[in-house]
Design a binder for these strands. Structure first.
Length: 490
RNA sequence: CGGGGUAUAGCGCAGUCCGGUUAGCGCACCUGCUUUGGGAGCAGGGGGUCGGGAGUUCGAAUCUCUCUACCCCGACCA
């Protein structure tokens, strides 16, 4: 096979980039740091969206939409929030262009300067909480359980396709509650939804934990996260779910009368997952032949490739192919019959491998004679000849098996890449030589955390379900009750 | 924002040091024939303001100045 991808072993970052481009998921655009998501990549996003949306609605959330622009003054209301986002905001200062009489072309009309600049949202807490203020007077108005599908802009220094782009797509949930407990439960519920989605749908095992003080969301009391492990041993933060306490309610003066007739500030959460998860999906499962997509997110689950010479051989093949396609469609499987005569079979095999289609069927004259098809699995690259009879239900089951197999493989990789370390030297050894997650005792101080950061790794999270054990901080030697997860990350 | 690099056909590159025919090569594209069970072969063909601007020169992809864009490495981040 012609080599179109740089191998993972040769250069992992290059492999990733090649893969995104060659498989047709996305490409860089004319705009710095912004990508074009191509149809195949967008189809994956639509699948993810569809499933997440279903999960949100099943837990009582509704979709709404808030403005792209946020008045600058809104940002200054929550101190930590400003601090966190001010450095990466795109700002609208004018509302009109005019012809440049001197240099030709267009120029910003200096007479069209805005009274107050508008920020292109990097996240919507501020505009949403300024709105919620008008929606809440009584505990009867609570909870508010809203999600929005949107694009946001963060002016990052360096960008990478899907992993970090200036503009990205995401969903952001913003809920308001009458009690602390209810908001905390919501925060927990949503991080668990992300974990479930990631594992069951994307086939990516995740650790669920809380962020340290220094790593949490700007303006949050607590940030819960899901952390996944990529094949190069680096961690990637998936979704995050924030317990915002009463911070935003206080900043935007959102008060309500509770059951006891007393005035109180509303309790808040926010949670989000982004197109970055497509990057995680790619890096978690794919190989040197291309993407490996779990069946549940694959836009095409089965592709049928006819093999024929001359137009006489095609009709009987098409007949069988269409029959199998219909059977699969009835079972809810998405199928593409690629009968283009502009590409050869070998070309198509390579192409669908690159695109990560889970199951490929090849049907040629031999199969017509014998009543068979050739079935190839993308995840294991196994091929075998199967009878046409009963192939649809076989594939239906096989897709489940593949979904499970992909998850299992990622899970085993993570297990093999998770190391308990008890000394500083062991930590450095894991980070520099082995990669993956290091589980280590930490004394909970900022000083020790900063020391860990000098290795270029960070504390990814404090596991929610970690076992309690006596230990000593690998930095300070001070006592610690449980281990935290340390890794280099994207 | 610091350090390094790049800009020549849709993509990837050579040519630039040392100025001089009509700016090449691979892939892709188009036409024809032969092919089709793992990215086909042969023949023919199309496609370029050499990133923009200014300068030096008889002559600039090549030298000088300038602007712009992008990439890589760091600090920031989902």
């Amino acid at each position: 096979m012609a080599k179109v991808l740089t191998s993972k072993e040769e250069n992992y970052a290059q492999w990733y980039n090649d893969l995104v481009l060659k498989s047709g998921l996305a490409e860089n655009s004319a705009v710095r740091g912004c990508m074009v998501i191509k149809p195949y990549g967008y189809a994956i996003w639509e699948k993810m969206k569809e499933e997440l949306d279903r999960m949100f609605k099943a837990t009582g959330h509704e979709n709404a939409y808030f403005p792209l622009f946020i008045p600058k003054s809104f940002f200054s209301k929550e101190a930590e929030h400003v601090e966190g986002f001010a450095k990466e905001c795109a700002v609208v200062t004018h509302y009109r262009l005019k012809t440049d009489e001197v240099n030709g072309g267009l120029m910003v009309d200096p007479d069209a300067k805005l009274e107050e600049e508008l920020i292109v949202r990097p996240t919507s807490e501020t505009i949403i909480w300024s709105t919620y203020k008008n929606w809440v007077q009584s505990y009867r108005d609570l909870p508010i359980l809203i999600n929005q599908w949107a694009n946001v802009v963060r002016w990052e220094m360096r960008t990478r396709l899907f992993l970090r782009t200036t503009e990205f797509l995401w969903q952001e949930g913003h809920t308001a509650h009458a009690t602390q407990k209810e908001a905390e439960d919501e925060t927990m519920q949503m991080v668990n939804i992300y974990a479930d989605f990631s594992e069951r749908f994307l086939g990516i095992p995740v650790l669920v934990g809380s962020k340290t003080e220094s790593e949490k969301f700007a303006g949050a009391v607590e940030t819960l996260t899901i952390e996944a492990l990529m094949q190069d041993g680096k961690a990637l933060q998936g979704g995050t779910s924030h317990f915002l306490g009463q911070n935003f309610a206080k900043a935007f003066d959102v008060k309500f009368t509770n059951r006891e007739g007393k005035l109180d500030h509303v309790w808040a959460t926010s949670w989000g997952m982004t197109t970055r998860m497509i990057g995680a999906l790619i890096m978690a499962h794919s190989d040197n032949h291309g993407l490996v997509l779990p069946p549940r997110v694959a836009p095409i689950q089965v592709v049928i490739v006819p093999i024929y010479r001359g137009n006489d051989e095609l009709p009987p093949i098409s007949e069988v192919a269409n029959k199998i396609k219909d059977q699969l469609t009835t079972l809810g499987v998405s199928v593409k019959f690629d009968d283009r005569d502009t590409q050869k079979p070998g070309w198509k095999f390579a192409e669908y491998e690159l695109k990560g289609v889970p199951v490929r069927l090849a049907i040629g004259p031999r199969d017509i004679q014998n009543g068979t098809v050739e079935l190839a699995r993308r995840d294991t690259l196994e091929k075998k000849v199967m009878p046409q009879e009963g192939i649809a239900s076989y594939i239906k089951n096989l897709l489940e098996e593949i979904q499970e197999g992909i998850y299992r493989k990622a899970f085993d990789f993570r297990s093999d890449s998770t190391h308990r370390v008890d000394t500083w030297d062991e930590l450095v050894d894991v980070l520099n030589n082995k990669g993956g997650f290091a589980l280590a005792h930490w004394d909970g101080t900022r000083e020790s955390e900063d020391k860990i950061k000098e290795t270029k790794a960070t504390i990814r999270c404090i596991l929610l379900d970690a076992e309690q054990e006596e230990g000593k901080c690998i930095v300070s030697g001070k006592p610690s009750k449980q281990r935290v997860v340390i890794a280099k990350a994207y």
